[in-house]
Design a binder for these strands. Structure first.
Lengths: 348, 348
DNA sequence: CTGAAAGCGCTTACAG
DNA sequence: CTGAAAGCGCTTACAG
């Protein structure tokens, strides 16, 4: 036998037609049990595998989902955000469990990703994952949807969005952190992170935090919010430096992400400011290293396993033209030592 | 225009044959510059994309690599080993840079993974990544190679292996840790991890460590080696408990992986044994959280970026039928506080 | 339950 | 430089 076996080879070997082979291998009830068995045996013997390119071409679906991990243009060779890495792992697992393959690709936000995978028929649908300026890629999302591409996005759930998205309840997460910090006696709680519609997830966290403070009768002080558009340690470090330069007193820091919190804690250490004794710190995401930090970081857990499953399941619904309900996933406050005072705080 | 445009639609629109369209879109020099320009414009206008299933079927290659992440059967819903997650990220990037797509899949070691991706023509070659009992999947590797599947494996480089593999110089890493611990004054250095040909990477680390101790005139004490076949925190925790039960004195722990080291450090903390004052600890991998541990963990850095690029480049060579040279990647000792004594150690 | 035939949308000799 | 034709290996009406 030269080259790989085809369905015709199985047909010759078993004395049936090629159509019957094709049916039998897909376990069609149209083929008798006995014939199916003989065909399966022959296939195994010849080491036959269905050519996916041929079957996908004919049947017009690929059994594959594409995951587009997009990043800000600034992203260099640095590691991928650990939170997205966790998501990637959970999405991979969810796909495998549902019999789908997963194609993974990095995308620069600037690149024409809306056109790729789905249009070239390599994937039946795409999952969008990443941080980036929402307003900058909004029109790409619109094109994507206009072209009928099945896609689902991890991120903020907004009233006017063109596409379907799944996200955590960032607002509630922001509330939970703020409530906790208030309970710890903090009154001047800084927010490190972008608080604008460019980064809606961070903005929701900010809004939950701000609403809680206001309900507690605290006047928001603009000097206590510092941008850190990128979710990186360096951005967190810089943001805290900026905060210190403003010379406004603060007794807690709520970082829009764990990575920002890690950078902020490093900056605090460099200034000999004790966490949590002088400043309480909280983050968001509960990335794996959060519990190993010194002190361990109080944060908001996003359930990446549930998130991955929900993304895949809803995308599959979209592909089958079934209705999908956009919903927010619950978050959970995880209190660790970085925010727990054993004694009254000395304000900075 | 109903449905997606095909190359025939472009042909009609531009008044050339479909073959010319196909050539032009692949930038064939056989087509005049002017004709190519017109065809590109028409393609853009009709939002045309080449159907990859059709082109792959015809040309018999897919422009796709498959990454098989395999795990021990014990792996449940727990997080993926952070080291492999880093590798995954770097492989994804390396593929993107070389214009290849990456298909990702989890595999149970028990499953018939040797048959999949490459045989179904979905991928031109496969990358194998993961821990598991080497002896248990050796015959699958043999089948894989016998069938002519292009594959490359991350792992130990052994003299008698059937396939091509890329790995770090685990032996040298083991030497580096042992040398460092000896310099710190440690003399009874326990090894936590499997030290058998079932897990050749761990075994190499063990052999480098053992050789170094013996050169220093230290007699190996079997009581100081504890299996931890799985590379998990729990396995590390259990291994250290076992070590303590043996009631043999030890002044250092060399864990076969960072995850094992983390578990061991947790067990030491639970027994109120101070790191590094009473017991120095070192790991292997330098996963992102290693530097955040308390105390930060001394370990051996495996350069995942280089590893990912080397894997992809060598697999691409295999696919082009070019010769590949199996080689070991260098490792780097990273000394942190978990192994640095400021004062003489109190042995346990 | 089975078979003969068409066709998915490309790429690639072959011919000019 | 361009075109007509074959064919990659399947799935799926259609007919029996």
């Amino acid at each position: 036998m030269k080259g790989k076996a085809t369905s015709f080879d199985i047909a010759h070997l078993t004395g049936v037609s090629q159509s019957t082979v094709s049916r039998a291998l897909r376990d069609s009830p149209l083929v008798s049990e006995e014939t199916r068995r003989r065909i399966r045996e022959a296939a195994e013997q010849l080491n036959y595998k269905v050519d996916k390119n041929a079957s996908n071409l004919r049947s017009q679906h690929s059994g594959t989902l594409a995951l587009l991990l997009f990043e800000d243009p600034t992203a260099d060779d640095s590691h991928i955000n650990p939170f997205f890495l966790s998501m990637l792992g959970s999405i991979t697992r969810a796909c495998a469990l549902r019999g789908y393959d997963l194609l993974i690709s990095f995308q620069q936000l600037s690149y024409d990703w809306h056109a790729d995978y789905a249009d070239t028929k390599k994937a039946d649908g795409i999952i969008l994952l990443g941080y980036g300026d929402y307003l900058a890629y909004l029109d790409k999302l619109q094109k994507l949807v206009a072209q009928g591409t099945r896609s689902i996005r991890w991120g903020a759930v907004l009233p006017d969005q063109p596409d379907v998205s799944i996200g955590c309840d960032n607002y509630q997460g922001g509330q939970a952190i703020a409530t906790h910090l208030l309970e710890q006696g903090c009154r001047r709680i800084a927010f490190l992170g972008d608080a604008s519609s460019h980064y809606p997830e961070f903005f929701e966290r900010y809004r939950g935090y701000a609403a809680t403070l206001q309900q507690a009768g605290i006047t928001m002080d603009p000097a206590l919010q510092v941008d850190a558009a990128e979710s990186t340690e360096q951005a967190g470090y810089n943001a805290l430096e900026t905060l210190l330069e403003r010379a406004e007193p603060f007794d807690a820091v709520f970082a829009a992400s764990d990575l920002i919190a890690i950078g902020a804690m490093r900056a605090l250490a460099d200034h000999n400011i004790k966490v949590p004794e002088q400043v309480a710190v909280a983050g968001f995401d509960d990335i794996p290293m959060a519990r190993f930090l010194n002190p361990p970081l109080t944060t908001v857990l996003q359930d990446t396993k549930l998130a991955g499953e929900t993304l895949v399941d809803n995308l599959l619904c979209l592909i089958r033209n079934e209705p999908v309900e956009t919903h927010l996933l619950p978050v959970k406050l995880v209190v660790r030592r970085s925010s727990q005072f054993s004694q009254p705080a000395d304000h900075v």
